[in-house]
Design a protein around this nucleic acid. Structure first.
Lengths: 315, 315
DNA sequence: ACCACCGGTTGAAACGTTTCAACAGCGACC
DNA sequence: GGTCGCTGTTGAAACGTTTCAACCGGTGGT
């Protein structure tokens, strides 16, 4: 249905090799010939077949991004920035949604391998997961956003979640809180998530430990802003005011956290910068035909807003 | 680097044709042979090359989705549902972000053509755009979410924006509002958007016309919930309370609109259903090797919440 | 006058699949 | 005993590119 390079060659009276040369400046072509070819391309509405191109050169110019949940603005922003950066280098991005399910994640990764992506980014990799090595062993560079790397060959965008949580705890303690809980989303991601552990460590350092349910707590640290914002809603529908009765802290600092009606205390992560960095790491690894094997540290920042306040007098 | 079908064939002492047959049950294979092949596949960690597969069969099992802004939950939800549905049929989804820019959109569509997607979905097509015909002329089925179709061959998920806006206006008038404005995002999408026109028509029917700026209005209709929620923030920072001083109406009914602290009156669009429908339309068109050329109507529903109230006494 | 080189062009071999016609062996049927 | 029809298996031709060695005619140097 679509015109092929042979069609263009025939129409302009040259060989396919010449058409290819015109298209990629890969060898000098006489100007009149060049023009004839260009004209034929125009007339036929010829558009290169990237599939054939990918097969021949052994590269697809495609990145895979495997995110748990594209509805979470933090992940969506990061992925979008990867796409923007990749686009500049002529790469497309295949987004694979894992829906927080390890099985789905595995299936998605297999699909990415099948489609021969040139590199993969995991904005939130399952800790200790065997998945990256499935890729690394095939020579596919991988960048993960993770506190800790399990494999030498991995590129790592490291966020010091422990330092971040420490800052959060300090803030809450200074407000008088002692009964602090952690809240994650309902999903399976609990096993994946280092943040509850980071909270535990930060509390332990002060001789405290997290309390079990949010109901028993005077302050709640949430695994991310989406969970925190949902918790705001839930709390207030249950009759507990934020921050008068209970303080809530998020993570990520999505734009909505700064909204006047939400006004969420949270830990800022620079999503766009992280996305750009991840893209650049994997792109340069691809260009050099090596693994990403690099590590950069990301600074977080505690943003204090109105969702945290002094602990209520009579608990 | 990766094992190929020839490697598997060699290792199990059969021809590549037989390996292919084992993989796809496309011809009967003797059980012992089958097992030998399967074992070789296992040992080599062989994974089919979808690129080669796509080239040979003239289909990539890939859908393109071209959305203006993946950070808008409505679009993200729709796209996610497309992906889920497509995945069930073994299709992958290539998401192209247009960033509300016609040039980018065009470039993205060309990229999709280059990668030979089997079908394309536009959750928010530029009205009267020439883009779909670029695809349709190549025999690629296209589904758009749009109030009106310009091409017979297009599949259309139609939303009756005029009826929806009519309902909104009726609601606002019943609250006593007469000075009603429209708010769009800062992007280029103004030309693309039918909603301001729908508002104009609904007002005209009652002998009114929209007022120019949001400052002069007692009620503001926003092009979507994201804009409405941002407006809430902006208004209140400027000292105008919602809904006491000004009413705000959104569009889409994203989950956040129901949040107690947002509580936004809005027009519900069933994003997931629309995504599923769009996917099914384009998938069945692909299966039948024809254009989508179909039209379904989507019902909207006005959800009245706390962001609209009676007009203030002394304006 | 010869050779070397250079700009321009091309044929053909890959890349990793699918698919089709062909064929080998073999039991069954008349 | 020949023919038919099965079940398994295979060689080879595509699919649309890229790339490399090869070729051709002309020009400049010696």
């Amino acid at each position: 249905m679509s015109a092929t390079m042979r069609d263009v060659a025939r129409r302009s009276g040259v060989s396919v090799a010449t058409v290819s040369n015109v298209l990629h400046n890969t060898a000098p072509v006489a100007e009149p010939t060049r023009l004839r070819v260009l004209e034929a391309i125009e007339q036929l509405g010829y558009r290169q077949n990237e599939v054939a191109r990918s097969l021949k050169r052994q590269t697809t110019h495609t990145l895979g991004v495997s995110i748990p949940d594209s509805l979470n603005p933090f992940h969506a922003t990061l992925a979008l920035e990867v796409e923007r950066r990749a686009h500049r280098d002529g790469f497309a991005v295949l987004v694979a949604e894992t829906e927080n399910d390890p099985e789905t994640e595995m299936a998605q990764v297999r699909a990415l391998v099948g489609r021969r992506v040139d590199g993969v980014i995991f904005p939130a990799v399952t800790a200790g997961s065997a998945i990256p090595s499935e890729l690394l062993d095939r020579g596919i560079p991988v960048v993960v956003v993770s506190f800790e790397g399990q494999d030498e060959r991995l590129g790592i965008i490291a966020v010091d979640e422990f330092a971040a949580m420490d800052e959060v705890v300090e803030h809450l303690l200074s407000l008088g809180h002692r009964r602090i809980a952690f809240a994650h989303s309902g999903q399976q991601e609990e096993q994946v998530d280092i943040r509850p552990e980071a909270l535990r460590v930060a509390l332990a350092r002060r001789g405290l430990e997290p309390v079990a349910g949010v109901d028993a707590a005077t302050a709640v640290c949430c695994t991310n802003d989406v969970v925190a914002i949902a918790l705001l809603d839930e709390m207030e529908r249950g009759g507990r005011r934020v921050p008068q009765d209970v303080s809530v802290v998020g993570f990520d600092d999505i734009p909505l956290a700064a909204h006047r009606r939400i006004d969420l205390t949270t830990v800022r992560q620079p999503a766009r910068e992280m996305g750009r960095l991840a893209a650049e790491m994997v792109l340069s690894a691809i260009a050099d035909r090596r693994h990403a094997a690099e590590r950069v540290m990301i600074e977080t920042e505690l943003i204090v807003r109105g969702s945290t306040g002094p602990v209520a007098e009579a608990a």
